[in-house]
Amino acid sequence: MKVIFLKDVKGKGKKGEIKNVADGYANNFLFKQGLAIEATPANLKALE
C-alpha cells in the first residue's frame, strides 16, 4: 500500500515521502498512530 508519511518514522520514511509499505503495517500502526495517510489521488493532490 502506498502511504504519505506525516512524520519521520525511523527506518521507514521521512515526513512528506511517499512509499510502499505492507498493508498490515499501514493499517495497524502508521494510520492508528497518525504517522501516515493513504496515498490516494485526493491526498496526493492536497500534498502538492
Rank of each mutant, 00 (worst) to 15 (best):
M1P: 04
M1V: 14
M1T: 13
M1H: 03
M1D: 02
M1Y: 09
K2C: 14
K2V: 13
K2E: 08
K2T: 13
K2P: 08
K2R: 14
V3Y: 01
V3T: 00
V3H: 00
V3Q: 01
V3F: 01
V3M: 02
V3G: 00
V3S: 01
V3N: 00
I4K: 03
I4S: 00
I4W: 02
I4V: 10
F5L: 07
F5W: 02
F5G: 00
F5V: 00
F5K: 01
F5A: 00
L6C: 09
L6S: 02
L6I: 11
K7L: 10
K7I: 11
K7H: 10
K7C: 14
K7G: 06
K7S: 10
D8W: 10
D8T: 12
D8H: 09
D8E: 08
D8A: 07
D8Y: 09
V9R: 01
V9I: 08
V9T: 03
V9P: 01
V9S: 02
K10V: 12
K10H: 12
K10T: 10
K10N: 11
K10M: 12
G11W: 08
G11I: 01
G11H: 07
G11Y: 08
G11N: 09
G11L: 05
G11V: 01
K12C: 15
K12T: 11
K12H: 15
K12N: 09
K12R: 13
G13Q: 01
G13L: 02
G13A: 10
G13Y: 13
G13R: 00
G13D: 02
G13P: 01
K14D: 06
K14P: 01
K14W: 09
K14R: 13
K14C: 13
K15F: 06
K15G: 03
K15V: 09
K15A: 12
K15L: 07
K15C: 11
K15H: 05
G16M: 06
G16E: 01
G16S: 03
G16L: 05
G16W: 11
E17N: 05
E17L: 02
E17W: 05
E17I: 03
E17Q: 11
E17T: 06
I18P: 01
I18C: 09
I18V: 13
I18Q: 05
I18N: 01
I18W: 02
K19V: 13
K19C: 08
K19L: 11
K19M: 12
K19Y: 08
K19E: 04
K19P: 00
K19Q: 08
K19I: 11
K19F: 07
N20R: 13
N20H: 14
N20A: 13
N20C: 15
N20L: 15
V21Y: 05
V21E: 02
V21N: 02
V21F: 08
V21P: 00
V21S: 02
A22S: 14
A22M: 10
A22H: 13
A22E: 14
A22G: 11
D23H: 15
D23P: 15
D23G: 13
D23K: 15
D23S: 15
G24K: 12
G24Y: 14
G24D: 15
G24P: 07
G24A: 14
G24Q: 13
G24W: 15
G24V: 13
G24R: 13
Y25G: 04
Y25Q: 04
Y25L: 08
Y25H: 03
Y25C: 07
Y25F: 11
Y25W: 09
Y25V: 08
Y25M: 06
Y25P: 06
Y25A: 05
A26I: 05
A26L: 06
A26G: 05
N27V: 15
N27I: 15
N27A: 13
N27T: 14
N27M: 15
N27C: 14
N28T: 09
N28A: 12
N28S: 12
N28L: 11
N28P: 03
N28Q: 11
F29P: 02
F29V: 13
F29G: 04
F29Q: 06
L30D: 00
L30C: 04
L30N: 00
L30R: 01
L30M: 03
F31H: 01
F31Q: 02
F31G: 02
F31A: 02
F31D: 01
F31I: 13
K32W: 08
K32I: 12
K32L: 11
K32Y: 07
K32R: 12
K32M: 11
K32H: 07
Q33E: 11
Q33K: 14
Q33A: 12
Q33H: 15
Q33N: 14
G34T: 03
G34W: 07
G34A: 06
G34Y: 08
G34S: 06
G34K: 10
G34Q: 07
L35C: 04
L35R: 02
L35H: 05
L35P: 01
L35K: 04
A36G: 04
A36Q: 01
A36F: 03
A36H: 00
A36T: 00
A36C: 04
A36V: 07
A36P: 00
A36W: 03
I37T: 06
I37G: 01
I37C: 08
I37F: 04
I37P: 00
I37N: 01
I37L: 09
E38Q: 09
E38G: 04
E38N: 05
E38P: 14
A39L: 06
A39C: 08
A39E: 02
A39S: 04
A39D: 01
T40F: 03
T40P: 03
T40Q: 04
T40E: 03
T40A: 03
T40L: 05
T40Y: 03
T40S: 09
P41F: 10
P41G: 07
P41I: 11
P41H: 10
P41A: 12
P41M: 10
P41V: 12
A42V: 09
A42M: 09
A42K: 10
A42E: 14
A42C: 10
A42F: 08
A42T: 10
N43T: 08
N43I: 09
N43C: 08
N43W: 04
N43P: 02
N43M: 09
N43Q: 07
N43V: 10
L44H: 04
L44C: 09
L44G: 04
L44T: 05
L44A: 07
L44M: 11
K45L: 14
K45W: 10
K45E: 11
K45S: 11
K45T: 10
K45R: 12
K45V: 09
A46S: 10
A46R: 13
A46H: 11
A46K: 13
A46P: 05
A46N: 10
A46T: 10
A46L: 14
A46W: 14
A46D: 09
L47P: 04
L47A: 09
L47M: 11
L47S: 07
L47Q: 09
L47C: 09
L47R: 07
L47W: 14
E48M: 14
E48C: 14
E48R: 13
E48T: 12
E48V: 13
E48S: 13
E48F: 14
